[in-house]
Design a protein around this nucleic acid. Sequence first.
RNA 1: GUGAGUGUAGCUCAGUCGGCAGAGCACCAGGUUGUGGCCCUGGGGGUCGUGGGUUCAAGUCCCAUCACUCACCCCA
Length: 421
Amino acid sequence: MIQLVRGFKDILPPETSVWQHVENTARQHFENFGFREMRPPVLEQAALFQRSIGENTDIVEKEMYTFAGSKDTMLTLRPEATASVVRAYIQHKLYASDPVCKFYTIGPMFRKERPQKGRYRQFHQINAEVFGVDSPYMDAQLIFMLMRYFERLSITGLRAHLNSLGCPDCRPAFRYSLSELLSARTEKLCEDCVRRLDKNPMRVLDCKKDSCRDAAADAPSMLDFLCENCAWHFNAVKSALDGMNISYEIDPRLVRGLDYYTRTAFEIQTDELGAQNAVAGGGRYDNLVEMLGGPSQPAIGFAVGVDRLIELVGSKMSFSEPGPDVFFVPMGEAAMEMSALWACRLADAGARTEADFSGRSLKALMRRADRMKAKNVLIVGDREIEENAAVLRNMKTSGQVEIPMDRLVETVFENISGQET
RNA sequence: GUGAGUGUAGCUCAGUCGGCAGAGCACCAGGUUGUGGCCCUGGGGGUCGUGGGUUCAAGUCCCAUCACUCACCCCA
């Protein structure tokens, strides 16, 4: 048979209820902070990601699902959301209606990586982006919102890592100093790091290999190179977070994988997910809007890895699916027809309803109702049809009452209203 | 792209030295001619991932291949 594509995943019940919970909580929480939902498409021109993420990042070099569109444009299944949100922000001139725009977006992303725990080729992110605010208090507020979101989901054991990547004024000096130092020690660096040295020397800092760590042990820190404005900004972010009682760790080795980040960079980590320890990550990208052809507008955002979040939430959340309020047990053709009608009316009136039309024995149907955790069973047989009534059995107490069909909906609601969910 | 591990019933897994394909759970039926759970009895369900090879004989040994898992890489 045809099986699903490698690295892709079916999300089935009861797990889907965890997804609903995670997404609904995000919607409600983010909207409290003034964010509105945006839904950009999943497909974009390849050039959008090449220009925003960076030509020589791994994502663009070898992980994108790119194919030929019409004429000579290449199309790409989005590997991340920020570029699309920025594109939409510019294209629809959203900056014109309000100097500050805040959006969140929820959906699938695609990267052709080798799948492993917490890493799929179709994965899901919840993104939040703010345009038009360069104030450090926005950075702090965004991180506050993110940490509180995790708290609302009862996730514990998370650590916030914080760093500043500087700006085009101060970063070149740091990069130069860093590559100077590392170039003198290439023999101690792994193959990958030698390659990185050329492309993005800052990535050497978060290599996990011991020899690379040694080589970079006394490397300069970006924080020592921050220009006056960036240093002020970073300090203001930290003190605002302190004031909000958000604990964080300064991590001078924290680097973002995408080229467009500036100044504040942060990552939320856990050690409950194996090698994929980042649950969320984000930072400022003050130059991206202009780079993509929009006005000069500062921006900051983050992405939450939903698949990873689900693993953390799922293990702490009970999967108890609610059973039907009323399970119809019809016996015979006439009873089935009547049950179909009344089950529809009851469900339409707002009760969880299930009717079994298999025609199996009463015992079999009772067993199925029990397994589905039905709170009540409505038995309809020849006897009941003759009297135009049905027997409502409470599965917990085993108590039974006979109720008239023409008052079925009202009577059922009277009987189930007191029952716990 | 690289490395390691694992593929046997719907699920979790046994399967000894190469000798009839198994268990638990789940599912179905019966144990009460109209009443679930607990218990008892019975039943259905298999391309042993796939293809080749060795052998009288392969789930078991060999080769290849695919899939999954974990890790590297990268990132959310």
